[in-house]
Design a binder for these strands. Sequence first.
DNA 1: AAATTATCGCAACATTGTTGCGATTGTGTA
DNA 2: TACACAATCGCAACAATGTTGCGATAATTT
Lengths: 130, 130
Amino acid sequence: MKATRNTTAKTAVLEVFEKSKTALSHTEIQKQLNDICDRVTIYRILDRLLNDDIIHKISNQDGTVKYAKCNHSHQRVHIHNHAHFSCENCHEITCLENVKPSYIMPHNYKVKEINFTLSGLCPKCLNSNI
Amino acid sequence: MKATRNTTAKTAVLEVFEKSKTALSHTEIQKQLNDICDRVTIYRILDRLLNDDIIHKISNQDGTVKYAKCNHSHQRVHIHNHAHFSCENCHEITCLENVKPSYIMPHNYKVKEINFTLSGLCPKCLNSNI
DNA sequence: AAATTATCGCAACATTGTTGCGATTGTGTA
DNA sequence: TACACAATCGCAACAATGTTGCGATAATTT
Ligand SMILES: [Zn+2]
Ligand SMILES: [Zn+2]
Ligand SMILES: [Zn+2]
Ligand SMILES: [Zn+2]
């Protein structure tokens, strides 16, 4: 296990996550970083943060990929079993930490991870009467 | 509403779906079609089939996008609320028509669609002791 | 301060999906 | 069956997103 370093770019990316209430795409992160580093670097930082369970990855139904900070890094077993909401209007993706689906699986399957994404209108867009 | 036509390419794509037990990516469809038509044509056929509710789209956690035939075209209200299973070993994605999650949402959200994907090992890979 | 090596920047490449437009073909109508 | 018209196609060109290799840089350790 090689040691992961605290570089200026990584710190900057973490600050962006800290400031954001919603999940962020690679492109959104790049814009907020204002060319502080190369796009490839951002990809590699995201890889490391995913690997260290500091962020988690969310693939949306429309094919976009976003990342969000984990709020449960302290847990011994690190599972992302919460739901995500994807707004079809503002395209923001938010973690619904308290929404966890229950379901019954057929035997013969070994489930290791779940991905539960709901889409529609977020409270903000619902209020502005779209 | 413009009429959709039955072209040879569209028929061929439908046959590929008919033969497959699992969901298919654009690339997989292209390989099976054996250059019967252009890649762009396949994209456009998939768009039409999605629009006509003949197939549905499945975005996997790893970012890949696949399509599968709908088994409920007869229903008045056409909703895809079933779960999908994504095998981390063989990368096959299958519809779990009978698995439907139950959940409790906070108010203020208007949910229109859900996307529930489970991943792990499929029965086939589980038996071969990976 | 020097050594080690994780990380970075850059260029080049791969994959996936989109768009415009002239050519082709499916389908309803005469 | 022949014709007209619009849906569909092929091709080229482009855009977005993600990956890889490698020499240069910089964060840690000693
Ligand atoms: Zn919204
Ligand atoms: Zn989340
Ligand atoms: Zn499998
Ligand atoms: Zn399905």
